[in-house]
Design a protein around this nucleic acid. Structure first.
Lengths: 343, 343
DNA sequence: AAGTAATATGTAATGGGTTACATCAGGGGG
DNA sequence: CCCCCTGATGTAACCCATTACATATTACTT
């Protein structure tokens, strides 16, 4: 593969001139320009990105860490990030951490070594000392979907606590009192937040918590399925189930249907996330919508702001707080109950 | 950020020794080893990936190009690729081409410049001259999901023609004759293949093609929705619809239901891909399953084989052909019809 | 015609690693 | 006691681009 020196020699100019053709075309005469471009074309020259990055000390690559690419939530975030990154001429290194803290750390080290321009960490499980490592290397990063109090970092997230509180409250308003919760992986802080919201709503309504009504899922369809099966076996079957994400809600719906029960008549079910499928399954799923695509966009914009202005000093970091929104559909039985009330 | 020279000076050794600690630990004495590692730790030294890649002329990064990350098919492929790549210590550059040939080309150029170790191109729209460009740069690549005859390249794909043929034939066997087809984007070769399979099955059954029964979709839910709406308006409503992918089938189901019709009694519907949702929507979708995760795995393995053995000579390339599989569920009305036949 | 500014181009240092080759110290053999 | 081999380490060239600074050329002033 030809390099800049060979091109220069072939074209009878210096390497500086060749480099200028690519980087500062305005400073090269028209004839030289043409000659060099023709030579490049002829020799199939492609500048070496490593050498360029080394010389410039920047990379036009950012990293996106997500816990599970198979959860449709994350491709949406990725899309938001990609849209911004591509427009800026950046590429994205995709890292699927599988909700595994060790894998996430491994990736972190690889990426720091690769000198990525910045990180977007979604639902990260990293600890402060890991984040501090990134800060020490002075690489900008943005946290998505997780709020950490004790480190100064760019963040964009929705209020999981509030979302969970709202949807649980909605179930209570509709008339249920035996409300179960299938949690997400409890090593993710956001799932603890959701559980807290659920508990708060029950508490405020004077409904006492029942430990057998809280089961831990794994954020995936299967976890919802198993969780629901387990709940249906409890001696007092719950009237409604709040799954900590839509994927689990879908699994739960499958479990309930396959037990011959009807939704929402026998058991109501609600989710969290509002993935595309939520509005398409039967019954349509009541859920909490978070503007995920937008979160990706915003996260990427924040990141590029840091990259471009290099302002990593503490206090300049932004925390962007988006409001979740309740989407009432059929699965929670809202309409039926309302009808009962009116009749 | 400290560099290798500073570490060497601080530790009182040469840069070669520091480098050896990282790359050839067996050739360094235990005491020196310890000293150097401690110094690195103290100085928070992280080797510069650019410099290393430049010196070694390789990058431990591969690129994955996909047409649409929001289509759940592609995250599955990505997962397969990622699983292999991570095991090999590689990172993945994710490029979402949005089914846009220009964007795909742009990415190609960026990636060649970045000196990625290889490409995985899924449902690529690139032309031979583009692929030739990659070959000229001697970068290994694997095509996924698309069969190109006239270039010698690693490929892994399922037989779209056969899959479409099978599922159309199945609809015919069940008893339908007015069978419509919502195609995928017709600038993707695989969708032409699918249409060809559909036409072949009809032709063999002696059913004449009706142009109003073929509408072009866009591979997305929305395209299926619009396509179905259009088909339902035709003067002779089709009895069955074959959507070229599950996403469009799901959109079509939504359209049919919202028109107050029943599936499969009024209109049967089948898809292609067997995404997770296919088995979860109501009615469960009859579709063609392709082993996507496995395709990702295989593609990645092929790619690493090329990367490691460097064998880019023509004739060494493999074409791996996977068989699609018909999954009969409820949406095609198979069971009902069978019952009719037996009664 | 000399001086100066503007334009175009070249030279060489620089970025931070890797590694072939050179060197040196210590152990073993004779 | 000397030589050779081995293992450990150092020196310096190399990977390939970018760019500050130096130089050369042309054009314009007065």
């Amino acid at each position: 593969m030809a390099n800049i020196r060979e091109v220069a020699k072939q074209a009878g100019v210096s390497v500086a001139t060749v480099s200028r053709v690519l980087n500062h075309p305005e400073s090269v005469s028209a004839t030289t320009m043409e000659l060099v471009l023709a030579t490049m074309e002829k020799m199939q020259y492609t500048p070496n990105g490593f050498a360029r990055s080394l010389a410039l000390n920047r990379s036009s690559t950012i990293a996106l860490l997500i816990p599970n690419i198979l959860n449709p939530l994350y491709p949406q975030i990725a899309k938001g990030v990609e849209d911004v990154a591509h427009q800026k001429g950046y590429n994205i290194l995709l890292c699927n951490t599988e909700e595994n803290k060790e894998k996430e750390r491994d990736y972190l080290d690889m990426l720091i070594e690769k000198r990525v321009g910045g990180f977007i960490l979604t639902s990260s499980q990293l600890e402060n000392k890991d984040l501090q490592k990134i800060k020490n290397q002075n690489v900008p990063f943005v946290m998505v979907g997780r709020n950490i109090e004790d480190i100064d970092a760019n963040m964009v997230f929705t209020d999981y606590y509030m979302g969970a509180y709202q949807i649980t409250q909605h179930l209570i308003e509709v008339g249920y009192s035996k409300i179960a919760h299938i949690t997400g992986s409890l090593n993710q802080i956001e799932n603890l937040e959701k559980r807290r919201g659920y508990e708060k709503a029950l508490e405020e309504a004077g409904i006492s918590l029942q430990s057998q009504y809280i089961v831990e899922g794994n954020n995936e369809i299967e976890g919802g399925y198993l969780g629901a099966k387990k709940l249906l076996k409890s001696k007092e079957k719950p009237q409604a189930i709040f799954a900590a994400n839509d994927l689990m809600a879908i699994g739960a719906i499958d479990a309930i249907k396959s037990s011959g029960l009807h939704i929402p008549e026998d058991v109501a079910i609600v989710g969290f996330d509002d993935i595309t499928m939520a509005a398409l399954i039967e019954p349509k799923l009541t859920t909490i919508s978070q503007p995920v695509y937008k979160m990706g966009l915003i996260a990427a914009r924040l990141l590029f702001e840091s990259i471009e202005n290099g302002q990593q000093e503490d206090g300049f970091q932004q925390k962007i707080f988006l409001q979740p929104k309740l989407k009432v559909r059929k699965s929670c039985g809202h309409e039926n109950r309302v009808r009962e009330i009116f009749n």
